[in-house]
Design a protein around this nucleic acid. Structure first.
Lengths: 144, 144
DNA sequence: ATCAATTAAGACAAAAATATCCTAATTGAT
DNA sequence: ATCAATTAGGATATTTTTGTCTTAATTGAT
């Protein structure tokens, strides 16, 4: 469904959020450990999230990644997915046609419509906040 | 969502079905032309569909690929996707956890549930027949 | 001012997905 | 029996994704 990069990006953002609530910055090393991902690759993905103003970085000693508390509630899953995988997941044609719409639909256009809309709605209405709070309270898990 | 291989596989199966209704066998060359896909790669994917008894091949002169008319109605999209991409699309965890279920859910487990079930239902309840008939009647398109 | 810890960035490597090519085997028509 | 058309299968090539490594730049602490 999502690329590995996107999976790591989502999990990284969630972990950073949980730590930001505690006032802690985190390093790629800690993130990779916590979400069970390759460290250097994760660092690359963090750069993309920084470019898209989803996470914020502080260079130098005692630096690391963080998300200002007040922003966590306003960040939606869709923004993270968009920053890493783009919007093809809910905009592109299910069968890869360049042109696919009501007037010129691919064979599964109508069938896919509901699935895509469900996905789009879910991504646009799920906030980083709720995901992070569930992790903090042990209701969900970032690895294994 | 699907791999390129899977997209080609679905479109190829639909085209073969439309031709099988007319009693025609088709070659990879004709298929590739009709669905706008790389010929040799498409031929590879057809082999997978043959192995899974979804399409049938006849070697030699006047040979080609076909699907017995009476089978077209019983082939579901899910079988084609399964033959090529496997079942991770609606069985695997959205964030790639090895273990992800009600007792040990990933952060998006519940959110994804509906999307995955919608997708699963759609794939399992869409027959090759309806897709092929829509192509034949010009209601949907295999390329451009 | 120096040092150690850190992010940024780009080059490089490995693996997987996508795509091509060549040869062998099969088969209907002549 | 031969030929031409066709699928099967394996080797190879290309592209994309995933992953690693190295160096430069930044920065707080001392």
């Amino acid at each position: 469904m999502f690329s590995k990069a996107c999976e790591y990006g989502i999990k990284a953002a969630i972990y950073i959020a949980t730590q930001s609530y505690e006032g802690n910055r985190v390093t790629p090393k800690a993130i990779a450990l916590e979400i069970d991902s390759p460290k250097a690759f994760t660092a690359k993905i963090l750069q993309a999230l920084v470019k898209h103003d989803i996470v914020f970085s502080v260079k130098g000693a005692y630096g690391g990644f963080e998300i200002p508390k007040e922003k966590i509630g306003r960040i939606k899953l869709s923004q993270i997915v968009n920053a890493i995988d783009g919007d093809t997941i809910y905009k592109g044609c299910g069968l890869g046609l360049n042109q696919c719409n009501e007037n010129h639909p691919c064979p599964v256009h109508d069938k896919f419509k509901r699935v895509r809309e469900e996905l789009k709605y879910m991504l646009e209405n799920t906030s980083l906040e709720e995901l992070a709070l569930n992790i903090k309270s042990g209701l969900s898990f970032l690895k294994v």
